[in-house]
């Protein structure tokens, strides 16, 4: 009985994954995100073109900034919004979800299958983007293609993937649980996340960025060079320092919670409304 249930869930998961993958790869937004993901590669090229010395002297710092500010702080949440949230929302808004809800498919498997498909596609874009950026920095700048350089690249790839998982899970729960998820997602990822990290105190504990930042390689000190940094804020941030292990555990737990919320919404939310002329 348990084996047959597990097999059924596995088959549902596989179907959901393959379905989501086929649909996502044909979407215009996938092409858009592919372009956005490789755009940062152009920055080292431009810097090298316009300044003969800047890039040679600060190549490493430019690569680190591109990874942290562009890929992890900006492109990761964008990928989650475009490939995760909008994918789910498309099904809900077009009401094609009712075909699915009247099929004998496990909601857990459906959510997980879609999530895996989203993660693989966005991870591919993120990894490719960071790799090409690293390669162009190696060719043009002061980074060397050695163990240290590759290790740095891999660490940023790892943090980027962690970001995709966390932002993706939040996007999935927004897409399934609320009515205007895109607005909410933009406010959350590009409003609250940025704002909370400038507020002294513990507000940033309620952001994904806090935990991603704590996984950054140690040499990337420029991330503390914010426009607004108070002595109190810096002190508190150091006081409430999050270790890599703790950050990983937090991201893992929050991902599970948000995906569980998605499954819960899929099971218990009503996704369709009738034209009712009923009496009061």
């Amino acid at each position: 009985m348990i084996t047959s249930r597990a097999k059924s869930i596995y088959l549902d998961l596989k179907t959901s994954f393959l379905h989501a993958l086929t649909i996502t790869l044909r979407r215009d937004r996938f092409i858009l995100m592919s372009i956005i993901s490789v755009l940062p590669v152009m920055i080292p090229i431009f810097v090298a073109l316009f300044s003969k010395t800047l890039f040679r002297e600060n190549g490493l710092e430019i690569f680190v900034k591109l990874c942290e500010q562009v890929y992890i702080h900006t492109i990761a949440p964008l990928l989650a919004l475009f490939l995760g949230l909008i994918g789910i929302r498309e099904e809900v808004d077009s009401l094609t979800i009712i075909y699915l809800l009247t099929r004998p498919v496990s909601k857990f498997a459906w959510v997980l299958g879609r999530f895996i498909a989203y993660f693989l596609v966005s991870a591919f874009l993120m990894v490719m983007g960071i790799f090409f950026t690293f390669t162009s920095c190696v060719i043009l700048g002061s980074i060397h293609f050695d163990t240290t350089g590759v290790s740095l690249m891999l660490q940023y790839m790892g943090v980027g993937l962690a970001g995709l998982i966390a932002y993706g899970a939040i996007s999935f729960s927004l897409g399934t649980a609320i009515n205007h998820p895109i607005i909410a997602g933009v406010i959350l990822f590009f409003g609250w996340e940025k704002l909370a990290n400038y507020i002294p105190g513990i507000a940033d504990f309620w952001t994904v960025q806090k935990y991603l930042d704590s996984m950054f390689p140690a040499l990337a000190t420029q991330r503390y060079n914010r426009a607004v940094v108070s002595v109190l804020g810096s002190f508190q941030k150091e006081l409430y320092f999050v270790s890599i292990n703790r950050a990983l555990v937090t991201i893992f737990i929050s991902t599970v919670i948000f995906l569980a919320l998605s499954v819960f919404s899929m099971r218990y939310r009503e996704f369709t409304k009738d034209r009712v002329v009923g009496s009061k």
Binding site: R26, S94, L95, T96, I98, T102, R103, P104
Partner: peptide, 21 residues
């Protein structure tokens, strides 16, 4: 939320809901 039951049901909705592409 009863997959066993849903496998025995068929539904043709009134409205057009499709992924057009």
């Amino acid at each position: 939320n009863n997959p066993r039951m849903l496998s025995q049901l068929g539904y043709c909705p009134e409205m057009d809901h499709f992924v057009e592409e």
